[in-house]
Nucleic acid binder design. Structure first.
Length: 232
DNA sequence: GCGACAG
DNA sequence: ATCTTGTCGC
């Protein structure tokens, strides 16, 4: 999809895609997804996966897995060119789309407002949120040390995202709008996705299944998660 | 020019 | 990201 793209070509496309950003309020969120990629060192085979959870219960309902041969190396600032093609392939396996997808990386908290979450959101025309584990762009003003504390991340005076403390005395995660949502709402949504780990549930579970997929414990395809039988 | 640099 | 042992803190 992005074969033979130079970094100059990629930069130009990011600037072009950014013109399609629509950061607006999103309502009626009942399902939320997490997307992630795993791969073996020195291999071009990517193991992509998307988990679908109920919101805000955070109960796993279904997940999809698919392989993809990457043709783009990792370059800081251009993660979308490496991961979006693989994620779009898994995305096709999902018949009923989730209300919003959380990506492992940034949305508009990016030099050209085109982090992997915004890139995927525009290509799939789907609401997305970026949730990165470390900062890439903007003033890194750290929030208080207690869970749920947050701080605005600005770039040249413009608030693009937030640093959110998901666990006491732990490194924060960086939240920003991907597409079809605002960074402010993305922060509110992600607060409700925090479990007992630093990484919020959507992305944490996605990371778990793509790893199981890579090691052979799970196979490609769409999987419905059986509901535990409840009496009465 | 120098440093920093999502996954 | 992935490869890895011990170790500090709750």
């Amino acid at each position: 999809m992005y074969d033979n793209f130079s970094l100059e070509d990629a930069t130009a496309l990011q600037i072009k895609l950014a013109k399609h950003l629509k950061l607006q309020n999103l309502q009626n969120i009942f399902t939320i997804a997490g997307a992630d990629i795993s791969f073996n060192k020195n291999s071009t085979t990517m193991y992509a996966g998307i988990v679908i959870l109920s919101y805000p219960q955070m109960i796993l309902k279904a997940f999809a897995l698919e392989n993809y041969e990457t043709s783009f190396p990792y370059e800081s600032g251009f993660l979308g060119f490496r991961e979006v093609p693989a994620l779009l392939k898994v995305w096709e396996l999902i018949a009923i789309k989730p209300d919003v997808v959380v990506l492992d990386g940034n949305g508009i908290l990016h030099p050209r407002r085109m982090g992997v979450a915004s890139h995927f959101g525009i290509m799939a025309n789907q609401p997305t949120i970026g949730c990165a584990k470390s900062i890439l762009h903007g003033d890194n003003h750290l929030p208080g040390k207690s869970k749920y504390s947050f701080e605005e991340i600005k770039s040249y005076g413009e608030t693009l995202g937030y640093a959110l403390r998901t666990k006491d005395n732990n490194k924060p995660v960086y939240i920003s709008a991907g597409q079809l949502i605002t960074s402010e709402q993305a922060l509110a949504v992600m607060k409700k996705c925090i479990g007992n780990y630093r990484i919020p549930e959507p992305t944490r579970m996605a990371h778990e299944i793509v790893n199981d997929f890579r090691t052979g414990n799970l196979k490609a395809g769409f999987h419905l998660v059986e509901q535990p039988l409840t009496l009465f």
